[in-house]
């Protein structure tokens, strides 16, 4: 069991926790947070695949992919939050009608 395996399992755990939250929580802000946790899990797995042992430098390609992914996640989150505020202003609710009815 080395550091890469530990990080991979942590990433898998984060992704699953995030997906569970995304499906189980009706509040849209919680859904946005859950999506971000899922993303963090994916990034952790990618970073773990970049590890090539204590002596060698890590693989730069997954590192670059994660950097790109973080920026995309930030911008998508900002847009999602703007949409959430708009939904709340328009309907007075912060959840989708399908979730509220259930």
């Amino acid at each position: 069991m080395n550091a890469a395996v530990l990080y991979t399992l942590m990433g898998v755990g984060l992704f699953s926790i995030g997906l569970h939250g995304f499906l189980a929580q009706p509040h849209l802000l919680r859904k946005v947070l859950a999506l971000n946790i899922m993303g963090s899990g994916v990034f952790a797995v990618l970073m773990a695949t970049a590890w090539r042992g204590p002596q060698l430098p890590p693989d730069p390609v997954p590192h670059a992919l994660v950097l790109t992914g973080i920026v995309v996640a930030v911008s998508a989150t900002a847009f999602a939050l703007a949409l959430l505020r708009r939904i709340h202003t328009a309907t007075g609710r912060a959840s989708l009608p399908e979730d509220t009815a259930a």
């Binding site: 395996v5 399992l9 755990g13 992704f15 699953s16 926790i17 569970h20 042992g53 693989d59 390609v61």
Partner: peptide, 23 residues
């Protein structure tokens, strides 16, 4: 969710531990 954890962990651990990648 628990099933997903197990399947993903199994998939991740069955990856080759030392792949050259694009380094």
């Amino acid at each position: 969710s628990w099933a997903l954890v197990l399947v993903l962990a199994w998939a991740a651990l069955s990856l080759p531990s030392h792949s050259p990648g694009l380094v």
